[in-house]
Design a protein around this nucleic acid. Structure first.
Length: 362
DNA sequence: CAGACGTGGGT
DNA sequence: TACCCAAGTCT
């Protein structure tokens, strides 16, 4: 069986018409690859166009601020990708004179670019013979060739890479790579694969042995943690302002903005918050919890966040003292109508969309 | 090398 | 509901 010929033949007939397949610009191919890491095409598509429009060339991206890049990335998740994208653009301008590097070794040096992405970019844009090994490829190869080694192990990855190296078309590695991925996305899917219509029916180890649903094998899974986020939505009606702060810790949503946050080990009641305020040294009489918006359960891969938003009304003068007493050192005021200029998480975005801050009087 | 890191869709 | 997973990388 000539796997390479068969799968590229299939690809020429079945491939989807995707925007980043219409270009040979390594910058745009890189952009699409970063956006598509761990992300479905339907989910990343809009972002590809947004970034392409805002930053048509790498130089423009390098000139932007990180805040601008994160704002545009808002809602896509895995925000490290956005920060690295920006960092890499600056690096290309400074180290490569604004010209996108044209070989595997140099591309691999860019922040946010690992073995998969470097292989994808250089094979597609420059015809370098490096095989891609992503989730699709691991699934397709492990099923057809019967790799039973766990794919989330070093050995498993190595076995897949060896087979891809064996079959890659040195004359057109980009097409071969995309063919395997496309086949994994459209036919050899994780659940309910199209085995009855599959051109590898006669060859596929998993199909012949009736273990399609057991391959690829995987080892580990991680436990999910519960976290309790208590946001303080502080409203100064006199100035139409609220307070925000930037998440600078090495944690989720790094460098995005949010309301001042009190994280706790358990649910925080209004009474408990009131108590914390009293204990802060701030005169608790001057602040009243107007309302509490709770029941926001925000689900991340390995974290369940139970969030509630306490709405507090304070005069500008009192809110200043309040923030100081409560220990929010880096928080700052912002006009309510300007909040949408800040990059925020889906959770904060959802709250904002469902609650009008300046109509909090009811 | 195990654990982090988002979001949304499917079963 | 809970769990899986999607064109991975970094620490």
């Amino acid at each position: 069986m000539n796997f390479g010929e068969k799968i590229t033949g299939w690809y020429h007939i079945h491939k989807r018409d995707l925007p980043w397949r219409k270009t040979s610009d390594p910058y745009l191919i890189w952009l699409s690859e970063i956006i598509l890491q761990q992300t479905r095409i339907e989910q990343g598509m809009d972002y590809y166009f947004k970034f392409k429009n805002a930053f048509p060339v790498v130089h423009k991206l390098a000139m932007a601020s990180e805040d601008q890049v994160l704002k545009l990335w808002q809602g896509l998740g895995y925000y490290t990708r956005a920060r690295n994208l920006h960092k890499a653009a600056k690096q290309i301008v400074e180290l490569h004179n604004g010209v996108f590097p044209n070989n595997y070794k140099d591309v691999l040096q860019l922040p946010g670019v690992g073995p998969y992405t470097a292989a994808a970019i250089t094979s597609i844009a420059f015809g370098e013979p490096y095989p891609v090994v992503d989730g699709n490829v691991m699934r397709v190869i492990s099923r057809i060739f019967g790799i039973e080694t766990a794919i989330d192990s070093t050995d498993g990855n190595k076995e897949i890479t060896t087979l891809m190296n064996k079959w890659i078309d040195k004359n057109d590695p980009g097409t071969f790579n995309q063919a395997v991925m496309e086949f994994g996305a459209l036919y050899c899917k994780p659940a309910n694969p199209e085995c009855s219509a599959c051109l590898f029916k006669e060859d596929c180890y998993a199909y012949k042995n009736k273990i399609v649903n057991e391959l690829p094998r995987k080892n580990g899974k991680v436990k999910t943690k519960k976290r309790y986020f208590n946001y303080l939505v502080i409203i100064s009606k006199e100035t139409n302002e609220t307070w925000l702060q930037k998440r600078t810790e090495k944690d989720i949503w790094q460098n995005l903005y949010e309301f001042p946050l009190l994280e706790s080990h358990n649910t925080m009641s209004e009474e408990l918050l009131q108590k914390k305020i009293d204990q802060s040294g701030f005169n608790g009489q001057q602040v009243k919890i107007q309302k509490t918006v709770h029941d926001y359960k925000h689900i991340l891969t390995h974290q369940h966040i139970y969030a509630r938003f306490f709405v507090l009304w304070l005069t500008p003068h009192h809110s200043d003292a309040f923030m100081k007493a409560m220990g929010f050192k880096s928080a700052f005021t912002v006009k309510i109508q300007n909040i949408d200029q800040y990059g925020i998480s889906r959770l904060t975005d959802r709250y904002l969309k469902e609650n009008k801050l300046n109509e909090a009087s009811t």
